[in-house]
């Protein structure tokens, strides 16, 4: 991280169409901003993009919003800019924990995401990636979830695994739970 830069999180949301990414990156290029991290997905027919950008220190949220004015008007996008404190640019943790991957699938019912994530929260597990999809017929929808998380080293992982299995039984879904050490090479 460069201390002399300003950092912003930028959210972009709108109806998907070809060329949105090019228009957004053009606006940032012309501003002289650097795209440090970005993630972009389509949810339904909505284009959703999240960027972490860095700029010269003269820029603030207003100047960033203004830079997007043409593209937001042309494409009917919603853009939200949030300035980051330097300590929030990169993740920091004194205790990295263990990597945990959870795959879940089964007949859809209310509360799957809530029950799994609240069990993890009770165990101080930090979710780092989560994606879900609902598919199948409307009368018999299927739910699928993929979750990555960091489990603190002081958590009893066997008990967590057995609690997840109990939850899978009560929700009548399949849960696969894997713990892995990150090889340091």
């Amino acid at each position: 991280m460069n201390e002399s830069k300003n950092y912003f999180a930028v959210f972009v949301l709108g109806t998907d169409s070809p060329g949105i990414v090019a228009d957004i990156s053009k606006a940032l290029f012309e501003l002289g901003a650097n795209i440090n991290d970005s993630s972009h997905t389509i949810i339904g027919n909505q284009f959703a993009m999240l960027l972490l950008i860095s700029t010269e220190p003269v820029y603030n949220t207003e100047t960033i919003q203004n830079a997007f004015q043409i593209v937001t008007q042309k494409r009917g996008l919603t853009v939200y800019t949030h300035q980051l404190r330097h300590e929030d640019v990169y993740r920091k943790s004194s205790e990295p924990g263990q990597l945990c991957v959870i795959h879940l699938y089964g007949a859809d019912k209310p509360g799957i995401v809530y029950q799994v994530t609240s069990l993890l929260a009770k165990n101080s597990v930090n979710i780092t990636d989560l994606s879900t999809r609902r598919f199948g017929s409307e009368s018999k929808p299927i739910y699928i979830m993929y979750l990555e998380a960091e489990v603190p080293n002081n958590i009893d992982t066997r008990k967590l695994g057995s609690d997840l299995n109990k939850l899978a039984l009560s929700l009548n879904v399949e849960i696969k739970y894997e713990l892995e050490e990150v090889a340091s090479l």
Binding site: L99, E180, V182, A183, L185
Partner: peptide, 13 residues
């Protein structure tokens, strides 16, 4: 598929 880190690429796994 396994997760690995590398001393020569210290910021990522």
């Amino acid at each position: 598929i396994v997760r690995e880190g590398c001393l020569s690429i210290p910021d990522f796994t």
